[in-house]
Amino acid sequence: MPYVNVKITREGGTTREQKAQVIKGISEVLRDVLGKPLSATFVVINEVELEDWGVGGLPVEDYRRQAGEKS
């Protein structure tokens, strides 16, 4: 029984329909590639506040600012 946990930031206002598409797509990939039944596949989407997300040792907003300066 596959369990997939998807974490995204809350920014951008992900809609219910978009989340449904993500759940469906991930479940279908596991079915098609690994033969896992849809009925036994669990997909959980967690939305995380942007201030609670980090990358490259920095809060994501600082990382993006720094990356923008390098471009």
Rank of each mutant, 00 (worst) to 15 (best):
M1F: 11
M1Q: 07
P2D: 07
Y3L: 15
Y3T: 11
Y3E: 11
Y3W: 11
N5E: 11
N5H: 15
N5Y: 05
V6K: 09
K7Q: 14
K7V: 06
K7W: 01
K7A: 02
T9A: 06
R10S: 08
R10K: 11
R10M: 10
R10G: 06
R10I: 07
R10H: 07
E11P: 04
E11T: 13
G12T: 04
G12Q: 08
G12D: 08
G12K: 08
G13D: 01
G13I: 08
T14M: 15
T14F: 00
T14I: 09
T15Y: 00
R16E: 08
R16N: 08
E17L: 05
E17A: 14
Q18E: 15
K19C: 05
K19T: 06
K19D: 09
A20K: 15
Q21W: 04
Q21Y: 09
V22M: 14
V22N: 10
I23M: 06
K24E: 15
K24A: 13
K24Y: 05
G25N: 14
I26V: 12
S27E: 00
E28V: 12
V29A: 12
L30H: 02
L30F: 06
D32S: 04
D32M: 03
L34C: 08
L34F: 01
L34K: 07
G35D: 06
G35T: 04
G35R: 03
P37Y: 01
L38Q: 04
L38P: 03
L38I: 06
S39Y: 02
A40G: 09
A40R: 12
T41R: 05
T41D: 09
F42C: 07
F42P: 01
F42V: 14
F42T: 07
V43M: 01
V43L: 01
V44E: 05
I45R: 04
N46C: 12
N46A: 15
E47W: 01
V48R: 03
V48P: 02
V48L: 08
V48Q: 11
L50C: 07
E51C: 10
E51A: 14
E51V: 05
D52C: 11
D52Y: 10
W53M: 15
W53R: 00
G54P: 15
V55S: 13
V55W: 13
V55P: 09
G56M: 10
G56Y: 02
G57F: 08
G57T: 12
G57W: 05
L58I: 14
L58H: 15
L58G: 01
L58R: 10
P59K: 00
P59C: 14
V60H: 14
E61D: 12
D62I: 11
Y63F: 12
Y63M: 08
R64M: 07
R65D: 05
R65H: 10
R65P: 09
Q66Y: 09
G68N: 04
G68C: 05
E69W: 03
E69Q: 06
S71D: 08
S71C: 12
